[in-house]
Design a protein around this nucleic acid. Structure first.
Lengths: 162, 162
DNA sequence: CCCGAAAAGTGGCATATGCCACTAATTTAG
DNA sequence: CTAAATTAGTGGCATATGCCACTTTTCGGG
């Protein structure tokens, strides 16, 4: 097996990324623990806050996550009263989401904890370095990746055939 | 709210990392789909292969994942006959893991698919850039992060008080 | 040799994510 | 305007991960 053929000591970009995500995830989770929120929930609440009563699809797109996954993830937050949903006025298919006042308060509380973790992290790797890393990750996330081979034959056909 | 206090447009290192992981994860999952393995399973099988009948704890440590999580993740692979476990000769607490011949075959099969995805990715971002990114991610994963405040009072005490 | 502390896993419970099959509501052909 | 195609979500099923409470073994003193 030649060099290019095997993941060397984890040459797999995906495996490396997940490993780092697990590691950093635990750190942020620990930091946010006092608030009772997980890092993912914090991120989700924040995304909702900065958007204007976003539709579920909009959130899913922004976070590059499956729509149904978003629905699942949202449930505990709705159950705990941090978030509420309501139908769009013009398109009844669309369900919009917003923070409740309780959710806003919880987010504010978590934000303080988040700041500590974030600063701790940036202190370790350097603010500039961290910014570069985030930029690189955003670039990766927004890549237009698609398998060129068989699997997507359908899609290709759709593009090439009338 | 001042600049440093809010995650701007996702200034959260953790959120950015997870977002990228979801995105890239789907790409690799799609690529590996024909083999029936998920990206995580592929990575786990690979890790087992390059180790010498590793103990579960060793695998968990290498992948920076919770030991119990590893146990859960391993179940489907054992169920499908790709992996088998056996007790360590000297320490009955230790459970070692190895690929079955079937697992080895499956890994070889998946490796071909992985190569396509990996090359596709490196073609997009550049091999050097990808290597740098992996290095940065490994560095982040191996950071010795710990909250300085209350939560770890115990640990601090253990270090300072005899 | 016996006991309490430490180490390695297991099982249960909860969240995180995805895919697929469906349902409801819209939009677009004809 | 009506039927086909598209869009937005939901619910079910399966894997991914973590934490906590235990159980089983070891190990380190007395």
């Amino acid at each position: 097996m030649n060099e290019a053929q095997k993941p060397g000591f984890s040459r797999c970009n995906n495996a490396t990324l997940r490993r780092a995500a697990r590691s950093l995830g635990r750190f942020y989770d620990d930091a946010l623990a006092p608030s009772g929120l997980k890092g993912t929930q914090f991120g989700l609440l924040f995304q909702i806050q900065i958007s204007d009563e976003p539709a579920m699809g909009a959130i899913a797109e922004a976070l590059i996550m499956d729509l149904s996954a978003l629905g699942h993830t949202l449930k505990p937050l709705i159950r705990d009263g941090y978030v509420e949903t309501f139908a769009d006025k013009d398109d009844r298919r669309v369900k919009r989401v917003r923070l409740t006042s309780q959710g806003q308060a919880k987010l504010d509380e978590a934000l303080k904890l988040w700041n500590v973790a974030q600063q701790q992290f940036e202190e370790k790797v350097g603010a500039e370095q961290a910014a570069k890393l985030r930029a690189a990750l955003d670039a990766v996330a927004d890549l237009d990746l698609a398998m060129p081979t068989a699997a997507l034959r359908t899609e290709e056909a759709a593009d090439q055939a009338p």
